[in-house]
Computed example of a mutant assay.
Amino acid sequence: MRTFVRLLLVVLMLTACGKKGPLIYPDMLLPAPPTAVTVRQVGQAMKISFVLNRKDRSGRDLKNLDGVTIFKRTTIAGQAPGCNACSEDFVLFRKLYLEPAPLESGVQRFGGMLLLLDSDVRIGDQYSYTVKPFTKDAVDGQASAPVTTAMVAPPPAPELKAVPDPVEIQLLFSSVPPGQGTFVGYNLYRAPKGDHLPYVALNREPISGKSFTDSGLDRKLSYVYVVRSVVRMPGGQLVESELSNEVVTRLTDE
């Protein structure tokens, strides 16, 4: 009888231990870094984008994410590249809180993706950015791997024309060849009149042709359109030109 009781106790202890799950080290409970961190030159600015990560480092849901801190490193033209693993080389660029909405001026959010511009840049210098999340308890998470690009003279701005009809609007592009690099296409941006232009292009991939037809529009609204040329530089990075002229138009009456 005693042997049976002892075996039963052992089984109960093993079962209870199994319910606790695997041991998770404290550093794995920290917020995981944002994903899809990118930087691209747009005109005379750098556009930084990233996707918020709602997980901790162990992959479990994170419910108290409060915001992110963005750090920046500037490498002056002619200097040796910095150390990506050396956090002391980076300085505070922006600290963003997710609440209350909307986010502060100059920051745009599309679902889980955040975008912002850095205009404090200079042609010839190289810029690196890393993004670190923090919780409502002021606990810092893991920083993202740095992303880096060099500032170059932007391609010339293209010209834009619009031809509306009762059901769609045709946008026509023209541009001069870039001084350096290879022309890739155009990125088109649209917003209802009175709204801020988005940092995300209307097209998913650069438009290789000289026109684009926009449909499914609201007949009651006027729309603002601008376009940028997209050029692949000799170093491989994609660069967008300055904004074209702004066109305001709407669907015509039938």
Rank of each mutant, 00 (worst) to 15 (best):
T130R: 12
T130C: 05
V131S: 00
K132T: 14
K132C: 10
P133G: 00
P133F: 06
P133L: 04
P133K: 09
P133T: 03
F134G: 02
T135R: 02
T135E: 07
T135L: 06
K136L: 12
K136Y: 05
D137R: 13
D137W: 03
D137V: 05
A138D: 15
A138E: 15
A138Q: 11
V139Y: 02
V139P: 08
D140A: 09
G141Y: 00
Q142D: 08
A143D: 07
A143H: 03
S144Y: 04
A145G: 00
A145R: 12
P146V: 00
V147C: 03
T148C: 03
T148L: 03
T149C: 08
M151C: 08
M151V: 11
V152S: 09
V152E: 05
A153Y: 15
A153F: 15
A153D: 14
P154A: 02
P155F: 07
P156E: 06
A157F: 01
P158C: 06
P158R: 02
L160K: 01
L160R: 00
K161Y: 14
K161I: 09
K161D: 12
A162E: 01
V163C: 10
V163A: 15
V163Y: 10
D165F: 03
D165L: 00
D165V: 06
D165R: 01
V167Q: 13
E168A: 15
E168Y: 06
I169H: 07
Q170E: 15
Q170L: 11
Q170A: 11
Q170K: 12
Q170I: 15
L171Q: 09
L171Y: 06
L172N: 01
L172Y: 08
F173W: 10
F173N: 01
F173H: 03
S174W: 06
S175I: 05
S175W: 13
V176I: 14
P178M: 03
P178A: 04
G179K: 12
G179T: 11
G179W: 06
G179D: 11
G179Y: 09
Q180K: 13
G181L: 08
G181R: 04
G181T: 05
F183G: 14
V184A: 01
V184Y: 07
G185H: 09
Y186M: 08
Y186L: 02
N187Q: 14
N187A: 15
N187S: 15
L188I: 11
Y189D: 02
Y189R: 00
Y189M: 01
Y189I: 01
R190T: 09
A191K: 04
A191C: 04
P192L: 10
P192N: 07
P192K: 01
K193F: 13
K193Y: 14
K193H: 13
K193T: 12
K193R: 14
D195V: 12
H196C: 10
H196D: 15
L197F: 08
L197V: 09
L197Q: 04
L197C: 07
L197P: 12
P198V: 04
P198E: 03
P198N: 04
Y199Q: 12
V200I: 11
L202A: 07
N203G: 09
N203H: 02
